[in-house]
Design a protein around this nucleic acid. Sequence first.
RNA 1: GUGGGCGUAGCUCAGCCGGUUAGAGCACCUGGUUGUGGCCCAGGAGGUCGUGGGUUCAAGUCCCAUCGCUCACCCCA
Length: 430
Amino acid sequence: MGEPVKRIRGVRDILPEETHLWRFMEWIVHAVMSTYGYQEIRTPAFEPTELFVRGVGLETDIVHKEMYTFTDKGGKSLTLKPELTAPVVRAYIQNHLDREAPITRLYYLDELYRQERPQKGRLRQFNQFGVEAIGSPHPEQDVEIIALAYDLCSLFVPQGLTVRLNSIGSPEQRGEYLKQLREVFQPYAADLDQLDRQRLKNNPLRLFDSKNPETQALLEQHAPLISDHISSEDRQHYEEVQAGLKALEVPFEHDPRQVRGLDYYTRTTFEITSGKLGAQDALCGGGRYDNLVQQLGGPDIPAIGFAAGVERLLLVAGESLKEKVTLRKLDVYLAVLAEEARAPALVRAQELRAAGYTVILETLRRSAKAQLREANRSEARAAVIMGEEEVKKGTCTVKRMDNGEQEEVAVDQLATHLDGILHPVPSTDK
RNA sequence: GUGGGCGUAGCUCAGCCGGUUAGAGCACCUGGUUGUGGCCCAGGAGGUCGUGGGUUCAAGUCCCAUCGCUCACCCCA
């Protein structure tokens, strides 16, 4: 036989005890998205590698070291999608959605792949839902997107969410800001640890991500804040976003140190974090990307979007979600006690299913005791028992699993009888 | 790629300063009922102690290596 084949690192099996939570979450996402007028888009699992290099940015870690890239038989470099904004924008451009309407509201619920070292809240294959609103440059669009993200996350995690908001302005001003940041920090370069010295050299914005308390203290004292160095238009935009969120009573905090890892962001960036999640505390992240559509060869159209991590939300929602989501109980366990009952039992099972009952049929030829135990274990509301006698008489024995009462009924009365047991007249119990 | 923690039954875990046939709880199976569940009682099955090497009279236990899982760093949802 040989060794069993094992699951590869960083991926997960989602077993029946959990799949119903996934279905619940997916259902909610579809429902809420449609109340906001967003429509679902599905893109391929893989794309030309170039899409991510151009869209996400060559300098980012995602492109740099996390992509599953392979060469197909034609020698073309393909990549399993590590994020969804670039593919959605590609699809938007390729299908000329910009010519259908001046604004396009898309959402997705999809699977991504990144070759990282797994840890809590981070897998190599994972799911995100998110939206891309392509067309509007105005702050009310930002507000709507953030409100939508907050709405959706709150439905799963009602407590302890924080919305962190920042504006990183436009690329033109950013160059100037980075220069300043570098200059201010240069004198302290020798005090930084190796990693932060690298950051100072390559991408000083990343210094804000440092977990080194000394670096954080230096930042506190000396670093200029990016939100103080944006253009007056950008500032105006940011203020209107904040005003809009206040009007909607979406709680948020201005986080001047928030810098996001993807190259395409402009102006508004935001994050929803949980605190109960360990080191990977972001449930949701997003922002405006006014230049991406053009950068990927489309028209000059502004856009904004977000993505939320399904696994992370489930991790935080966990137990409380399990209490909320109940499974439909099994109606009937069909026990077969004699050889001559096997064929008629198959027929009964199909009839009951056609009538809308959930039915499990015994196929292991076990003893009566074992079958009833199985009925109990599977939490069936009733056991329908068919043996020698019943077949002879054209009846079935129906046993209620809650109180043990049983009664023999004619085959043509079976559905009616079950109906009386399983759907009792509504009483005070809920 | 780097660092820490952990690998003993299907699951959760005991197993002392190395010492005799490696344990418990849960789950599973059988019986206590000619064809009747839960609770109880009796019994049963299930283990290359992650793997390989070393030290020793003797290794689940000590040492080395290796693989796996996990948390964290980097970075992100």
